[in-house]
Design a protein around this nucleic acid. Sequence first.
RNA 1: GGAGGCGUGGUGUAGCUGGUCUAACAUACCUGCCUGUCACGCAGGAGAUCGCGGGUUCGAAUCCCGUCGCUUCCGCCA
Length: 602
Amino acid sequence: MQKKRTHMVGELADEALIGKEVVLAGWVGRRRDLGGLIFIDLRDRSGIVQVVFNPETSPAAHSIAEKLGSEDVISVSGVVVERPPGTVNPSIPTGKIDVVADFLEVLSKSKTPPFYITENLDVDEVLRLRYRYLDLRRPDMQRNIILRHRLTMAVRNYLDSEGFIEVETPMFIKSTPEGARDYVVPSRVNPGKFFALPQSPQIFKQILMVSGFDKYFQLARCFRDEDLRADRQPEFTQIDIEMSFVDRDDILALIEGLMAHCVKEVLGKQLSTPFPRMSYAEAMKRYGSDKPDIRFGMEIVDISDVVKDSGFGVFRNAIGEGGMVGAIVAPSCSDYSRQQVKELENVVKEFGAAGLISAAVSRNEEGEEILTSQVSKFLTDAELSGIARTTGAKEGDLVLIVAGSQDIVLESLGRLRLHLGSKLDLIPEEEMAFVWITEFPMFEFSQEEQRLVAVHHPFTSPLEEDMDLIETEPLNMRANIYDLVLNGVELGSGSIRIHRRDVQERVFTALGLSEEEAKEKFGFLLEAFEYGAPPHGGIAIGFDRMAMLFAGRKTIRDVIAFPKTQKAVCPMTGAPGNLSEEQLKELHIRVVNMGKIGTSSD
RNA sequence: GGAGGCGUGGUGUAGCUGGUCUAACAUACCUGCCUGUCACGCAGGAGAUCGCGGGUUCGAAUCCCGUCGCUUCCGCCA
């Protein structure tokens, strides 16, 4: 029978414990065997402490300690002592003390681990995921998971204090059209029928408003069968919120309060509210993105006016065809080689730009700032100085110019801006720059389906003043959508919903949905709306991304205990796996063999 | 579906203009020595047919083709 643990090792930093007998338990980190004395780093979730085994004072414990290996689980008792002068380790909180062991018990031996249990580990991520239990033992991963926990507590406490009710909604739901691909679950008792896992609780939260809950929230698990990214997993968590009798600003203010609360509780910092707000059109114009990273400048400048009558065909034609000429200024890059500029050109080409024109700013013999470019000979002096003046480029800067359609110029320059921002180290990593993006377009044209689709979802309310554009120029219609952006990452998205039957019908019509189709697809929601639907709106915040940014990580996999790889598999459990013939039969499913895809059980 | 990067002892890397590579280094691991270390030190040892398959060649970790896995990005993600 092991001795009962009296302290977590982190608590021993408290000097009041010096001289006290303690019982600790945890994992063996490094062992330093000096032949006589043995030191080990004992680790638990609260930190590490050094335990000393002395062969003269406790030979029994010392002889067991001689055989300790990494990651063995032990129970130790001993006295907390102040370290001799000159042996203090200032890099750990418990560095002023030792625990002099008088008793040691090995509770569990460990095989040699496949990687070190240490901070800032650099190993293949599959290996980390295959041995996730060891990876999660590492202090930085423990911090991430604990931070995530503290965030969930902060969110629940705040929303509870604001009068919100957390309601769980079903995981097995009816597949609805539009949006991402569904993950699907067969129904054994209904042969040939399938449930879908929710992409979000969207319809249920709106129905809860009809039910009169007024303020709903949920830390909701969502599922989308789309390709993965550093910030996208097939299952993820969102802070799902819906409120009745509110307008847009009520929701923005609530979320600002929520974020400020979380930042204060979890990071101990003060966040200033309200957050800046920017229309979609303005974000695109200035940053070439609907999720701008506003922690640094280098904004896009429209130089169309300066070069619209230029002798340079590339500029003149782009503008003549309804496009634009845009520029950004890369500070102190005028000495970029042709090779380096080529590299930047590859960035914009990836996003459809035909090419990239660069112009270096230097000073001539008279001390005037002049632009030099590979296309200087096509441009007049007035145009060159106009470009310098409009962009505000200074001596030593490099002006980077793209000409073409508006979409391509803005997007490619926006991407180039981000590329340069990180390359030139212009982004203050510590800053948290929230911004609201509003007034998104209501519809966009889907080339694939050759019809209008909703930018957000079909229940999003148009801006009232744009309502009558719906039949004439729907693509110019704006919706009451708002996105929350943090440091260039889309954190959340929401809208005021349609609660009027006639408006909903006009939107369905614009989307090319007949009355029967609408009834077939969303009939239960439309029916619910006929029994007294309050005006309502809401938002969903990507909780994994929020935790990632709060933890200062580059991927949400680092704040998810058991994430999947880019091919959506779990290296630890081997999911997804095969089903036995028996299971398949019971589910009324047959797997069509395509080459190597098998049906055998594992 | 597409583009880039990576794949060499347990781990992280070097080697990759073909030939003492019979694969190097660090660390982890094993053995021995060591009573104030804290990435302990010192000495010794074991451990990889270089992701997999094929091709070129007298000869392939190295060149070519294919394939698999991981990763970043594009498409996709109402």
